[in-house]
Amino acid sequence: MTTIADAIAALETGELIHLPTETVYGLGARADAPAAVAKVFEAKGRPKFNPLIVHVASLEAAELIGIFDDRARALARAFWPGPLTLVVPVRDTAKVCDLARAGLDSVAIRVPAHPVALAILQGFGGGVVAPSANRSGRPSPTRFQDAVSETGPSVAASVDGGDCQVGLESTVVSVLNDVRYLRPGAITRAQIEAIAGALAEDASEGHRSPGRLSLHYAPDAPVEINIDNPPMDCVYLAFGDTDFTGPVLNLSPTRDLSEAAANLFTCLRKADALKPARICVAPIPADGLGEAINDRLKRAAGFVG
């Protein structure tokens, strides 16, 4: 474990860090240096056409990187710091290199709501790309030890910020010609619509968001979802009470969606560590935060979405 000062120094020299946020642990690199960003792709094995989210300390810092219209600014003021990423036209390509943007004319930006992350970002002073600190396709780390286990050998500084409170990657909203809900997260579609009005369909801009590959967030064991009667050869991720007599990990005994979101990746990891023939997951309601949970589960199960 290292300090905030160590993390800032590592970023300044183009090395990788573990960046704790309220969503998941990030694998951080300075956004303006292609060589540093390339280390992220190397550590994750991540496809280079997948854009990365740039983390900054404030809306003012974000506006140096991207072009914010009144809609984007209203969303930022409503939900930043917090688990919302905004995709906007890029303003300064020198501050976010082409590799980080996957060659696009847009940039994905977020201000995280975690005191350690904000202290690092404020101390560094520039944008930091920070995709989840897992190897590509693996469940995202929501605990410090999981981040270290996944990508520890690749980083120069790992800062322990405790367990992530949200436990899901950020909601991604595109604010270009239209406002589009590209990736579900803790900020729900209804919350975005309350600020921005009716949303356009996302089909034409999904490539601008991280986490949109069909198979993503996947453990080694095959995942089956919406299972009410699990077979005995599985580890069962329950949601509420269950009569299953095999190995059970409960996402939320009280059927609380926030608790289920926070536990999702940890439970997937624990289930996978048991080397089961398969991992079965109970049905999760699709309303509110359930949309994001189901999105991650569909990707873990290999469904296109």
Score class of each variant (00 low, 15 high):
Ser252Lys: 12
Ser252Ile: 10
Ser252Met: 13
Pro253Met: 08
Pro253Cys: 08
Thr254Val: 06
Arg255Met: 14
Arg255Ala: 14
Arg255Thr: 09
Asp256Cys: 14
Asp256Ala: 03
Asp256Val: 00
Leu257Tyr: 06
Leu257Asn: 11
Ser258Cys: 06
Ser258Arg: 14
Ser258Trp: 07
Glu259Ser: 11
Ala260Met: 06
Ala260Gly: 07
Ala261Phe: 05
Ala261Asp: 03
Ala262Thr: 05
Ala262Phe: 00
Asn263Leu: 03
Asn263Ala: 14
Asn263Asp: 03
Leu264Met: 07
Leu264Tyr: 00
Leu264Gln: 01
Phe265Asn: 10
Phe265Tyr: 15
Phe265Pro: 05
Cys267Gly: 00
Cys267Trp: 04
Cys267Asp: 08
Leu268Tyr: 09
Leu268Ile: 07
Arg269Tyr: 02
Lys270Gly: 00
Lys270Ile: 04
Lys270Ser: 09
Asp272Pro: 01
Ala273Ile: 00
Ala273Trp: 01
Ala273Met: 10
Leu274Glu: 04
Lys275His: 13
Lys275Asp: 12
Lys275Leu: 11
Lys275Trp: 07
Pro276Thr: 13
Ala277Leu: 11
Ala277Met: 07
Ala277Asp: 13
Arg278Asn: 06
Arg278Leu: 11
Arg278Ser: 12
Arg278Pro: 06
Ile279Met: 06
Ile279Ala: 07
Cys280Thr: 15
Cys280Gly: 10
Cys280Glu: 13
Cys280Leu: 01
Cys280Asn: 05
Cys280Pro: 02
Val281His: 08
Val281Pro: 00
Ala282Glu: 11
Pro283Glu: 12
Ile284Thr: 06
Ile284Phe: 02
Ile284Gln: 10
Ile284His: 00
Ile284Asp: 04
Pro285Val: 05
Pro285Gly: 07
Pro285Thr: 11
Ala286Gly: 14
Ala286Val: 15
Ala286Cys: 10
Ala286Asn: 13
Asp287Gln: 12
Asp287Phe: 03
Asp287Leu: 06
Asp287Cys: 06
Asp287Asn: 14
Gly288Trp: 04
Gly288Cys: 07
Gly288Asn: 11
Gly288Val: 12
Leu289Ala: 12
Leu289Phe: 02
Gly290Cys: 09
Gly290Ile: 03
Gly290Asp: 06
Gly290Met: 08
Gly290Asn: 05
Glu291Trp: 01
Glu291Leu: 13
Ala292Gly: 12
Ala292Lys: 13
Ile293Thr: 05
Ile293Asn: 05
Ile293Trp: 04
Asp295Ala: 12
Arg296Phe: 15
Arg296Val: 13
Arg296Gly: 14
Arg296Thr: 13
Leu297Tyr: 05
Leu297Gly: 06
Lys298Tyr: 05
Lys298Trp: 02
Arg299Glu: 00
Arg299Leu: 00
Ala301Met: 08
Ala301His: 01
Gly302Phe: 12
Gly302Trp: 12
Phe303Thr: 04
Phe303Ala: 10
Phe303Lys: 11
Phe303Asp: 05
Val304Ala: 15
Val304Gln: 14
Val304Pro: 03
Val304Asp: 15
Val304Arg: 15
